[in-house]
């Protein structure tokens, strides 16, 4: 425990190379899964193609539960990439964490608030962008006065609250999971008794973390689409 993050500075920007590494790994894994499973595609799907089609339909279901497909179809790829990216990112920190010289290198990229907040801000910026693009500036601005004009300050606060909760919820869940797994791993390495004592809770918590990671990926995409639908639909 008590790991610190590596830190690089380059062109006046601060980098956490661990984050960069894990982002790259996540992207690579997601891409490989998607790429390999979409080789040799057939009209009558088999094996991995079935799985990818299920994921697609699942994401389609998320979008459809928030807006009609004519509006929401354009967010399909975004939501699909988001859910796979976040899911894989959440899973990466589960089996192990690698620290070298007390510097933490291998972890879930989503256990870093910078990354989750970036994703959240990106989603919220996109909602505003599509809100303006699809309903026009006037409707977009009028949207802040609905349902009642005096609620406008609340609506503005809501935008920031949404961003913050969207990013920090994901970060908090995954980070907490990693902390607990780290603690249990520390207990397991303390001695034979500690190892025996840590086996059960570690296994239970890892199983639970898989569940949390899956749920959080789903929630992130679900909420993204909820926020999106609030912006791109004028009639409620």
């Amino acid at each position: 425990m008590n790991h610190v993050n590596p830190k690089w500075e380059f062109l006046g920007l601060t980098f956490n190379p661990s984050n960069i590494l894990m982002l790259a790994v996540t992207c690579l894994i997601v891409f490989l899964i998607a790429f390999i499973s979409t080789r040799n595609m057939k009209l009558k799907p088999t094996g991995m193609q079935n799985f990818m089609e299920w994921v697609m339909d699942f994401v389609k279901g998320i979008i459809k539960s928030n807006m009609d497909w004519k509006t929401g179809g354009r967010f399909h790829l975004l939501a699909l990439t988001l859910i796979m990216f976040i899911f894989v990112a959440n899973m990466l920190g589960l089996p192990f964490a690698i620290a070298y010289d007390h510097v933490l290198w291998w972890k879930s990229p989503t256990a870093d608030p910078t990354i989750t907040m970036t994703l959240a801000v990106m989603v919220l910026v996109l909602t505003h962008y599509y809100g303006v693009k699809m309903t026009g500036v006037k409707n977009y601005l009028l949207g802040f006065t609905k349902p009642l004009a005096f609620m406008t300050p609340l609506k503005i606060i809501e935008e920031f609250a949404n961003t913050l909760t969207l990013g920090l919820r994901l970060y908090g869940n995954i980070y907490a999971g990693e902390i607990l797994i780290g603690l249990l791993a520390g207990l397991a390495t303390a001695g034979v008794g500690g190892f025996l004592g840590a086996i059960l809770p570690a296994m239970a918590w890892q199983g639970f973390s898989i569940f949390i990671g899956t749920i959080q990926a789903f929630i992130f995409v679900m909420l993204s689409m909820v926020y999106m639908s609030h912006k791109v639909q004028t009639d409620h």
Binding site: T14, F15, N16, N19, I20, L23, C27, D112, T118
Partner: peptide, 12 residues
């Protein structure tokens, strides 16, 4: 971590 933000956006 401005670099991370940019990297995240870039990677995604």
């Amino acid at each position: 971590n401005t670099g991370d933000i940019l990297a995240t956006l870039f990677f995604f």
